[in-house]
Simulated assay, not measured.
Amino acid sequence: MQIIKILAFLSSLCASNMLWAQAAPSHGGHGGSSGGSDDVSCIKAKISHYKPEHLSSVSPGSEFSFTVSGSNGPNHIHVSIRQEPVAISFEDKESFFLVKGKLPANLKNETVRVSVRAKARISKCDADGGMLLKITE
């Protein structure tokens, strides 16, 4: 009789522990929510509204523009062509930045990528983007 009571107690203890593990959050895939210390929610930076559009034909020295939202500020937006920085200007539109720049005048009859990097407050929320432009004379 004593053994039956002990077995009943142990089986109920095991069952309650299994239920507790399923209900407890942040167990790395063992039930509950998928939280964790490295699961930091963020506002991802977004680069959009490219002008001229991707794969457009443009003249040397042409202007380009795009918008950036969710960035950590204008000092955290970088533009380059062939890994060389490009001078840009910013207009703060309250919920986003309008970024403008000019293609180098010495680039002629080639296709180049205007690379854009917008850094957010949390590095995993950074955005990389860009556009290809066909520069014709």
Rank of each mutant, 00 (worst) to 15 (best):
A127S: 10
A15D: 03
N17H: 11
I77V: 10
S89Y: 05
G35C: 04
S37Y: 13
F66N: 02
S71K: 01
E110C: 05
R82W: 09
L133R: 01
S65L: 10
D38E: 08
S26V: 02
I43K: 06
K51L: 13
F64W: 11
S123F: 11
C42V: 03
T136I: 15
N106H: 15
K119C: 08
S11P: 00
A127M: 02
S89A: 14
E84W: 08
G130H: 02
E84R: 14
A21G: 02
I3F: 12
E63I: 06
G36I: 00
H78G: 01
V68S: 01
G61P: 01
H78N: 12
C125I: 09
E91V: 15
S33F: 07
D39Q: 08
W20D: 10
V116N: 04
L7N: 12
G129A: 04
Q83R: 11
S59P: 04
P25T: 02
K119D: 14
R82V: 02
K102C: 02
G73V: 14
Y50T: 07
V79W: 05
E63F: 12
G101C: 07
V79I: 13
P104Y: 05
P104T: 00
H76Y: 15
P85I: 06
D92P: 00
A15K: 01
V40G: 00
V79Q: 07
P60V: 06
I122V: 13
P52Y: 06
D39Y: 09
G70E: 13
C14F: 14
L13Y: 09
N72I: 01
L103K: 03
I77R: 02
L7D: 02
A8H: 05
K100N: 01
L13N: 05
H49S: 15
P104Q: 00
E91W: 06
G29F: 07
L55Q: 14
S33N: 14
N109K: 09
I135T: 06
T136G: 02
D92H: 03
K134V: 06
P74T: 11
S115I: 00
V58K: 00
L7Y: 06
L7H: 04
A15I: 12
F64P: 10
G35T: 00
E94S: 09
M1K: 11
K108S: 09
I81V: 15
K46N: 14
V99Q: 00
A23E: 08
K102M: 05
G28E: 07
S11M: 12
R113S: 03
V116L: 06
A24F: 11
G101I: 03
V114Y: 01
S41N: 13
G70V: 04
D126T: 06
K134I: 10
M1L: 10
G32M: 12
